[in-house]
Write a protein that binds this DNA or RNA. Sequence first.
DNA 1: GAGCCCATGTAAGATGTTACATGATTTA
DNA 2: TAAATCATGTAACATCTTACATGGGCTC
Lengths: 187, 187
Amino acid sequence: MLNMRPRSGYEIKQFADSSTRFFWAASYGQIYPELRRLEEQGLISGADEANGDRRRRVYRIEPAGRTQLLAWLSTPGGVLELRDEDLLKLFFADALEPAGALALVRGMRASAAERLARLEEVREHAAKAGAGRAPHRFPSLVLQYGLDLHAWVVSWCEEVEARLAAAGPDDALHTPALTLTTPAEEA
Amino acid sequence: MLNMRPRSGYEIKQFADSSTRFFWAASYGQIYPELRRLEEQGLISGADEANGDRRRRVYRIEPAGRTQLLAWLSTPGGVLELRDEDLLKLFFADALEPAGALALVRGMRASAAERLARLEEVREHAAKAGAGRAPHRFPSLVLQYGLDLHAWVVSWCEEVEARLAAAGPDDALHTPALTLTTPAEEA
DNA sequence: GAGCCCATGTAAGATGTTACATGATTTA
DNA sequence: TAAATCATGTAACATCTTACATGGGCTC
């Protein structure tokens, strides 16, 4: 983030909360100590700015830091962790009556729709703030990933809800839920 | 898991590693202490089984535990946490040359394809093991979710790769990546 | 008899969240 | 003037992973 432009810890938190939060969250308890560590390693440098009487420490990336950043970006692979309590509940939904299982999936859909709405707010906000300037391209690509993904989850739930609602004692619940069609394949 | 059938801590770990691991992982360091706590609360009960000379403690769910389980399953909402380092890298990919960004997306696709392959192994294994018996329905529904989801990620990456490869200085990278079509809508 | 699987457990450490403490400035 | 926001930081707590310790049984 400091490679995009210099920022204070507070600004990093603000920015993260409206962007990377959805796939990589960070709290003050991580940010401030980490800034100190990075400075000790000479990867970034901080300068106290006095705006009025309010102290503010703005960090900028150093050449060594940029090198490290590029090395990290070029390292293939990385952490992927998911913790989805709704999915865990669905996994055990055989313990519920059919109505309960249906309610679970409806809840999952509602949550996904909610997150989708929040991401759309982010997009609108970013469109206003970023108008005019030559923007970074990839943050909005990742935002689009989030939008597409949550839209996918919503459709998946709708599909499963329909099957659960229709299911008698005989049911074919386990066929692929969605047909994915890329524009290229439609031709 | 104990509601499905009695198990030892070791068996719980085995089962989790081939099922819930993908959206809710658990280590021995969590499982064994948690079993003790649940027993202290009277939600489960453990019995030492001697098979040969090898000690083994098998736990079963108690009525109070089943009540708690059903209460949890009926509570709407829950944790959803994602930590995706690939997505984080992609977010900052403006710092890379076009070839580097393309490599990133290719790496993402490879990882998703790998996970997809592993889930397919799980499905085949489950199909063999569960043949005949009246199975739990929802574990395989959740497995299907994983398969569908990773397939979706693979297509998303392919789509983006094509755009990145084609992109000159002018590029429309930020349109929705995939057209989702549910069978119902195709009619 | 070597290596792997069954089986239970813990200790140390890494990581991360929440709440609190502090205090200035801006806005309604 | 009260509330929100700017701004930095820490302490306590919760959580989770990794590595280790221990020991029996099975299979090549």
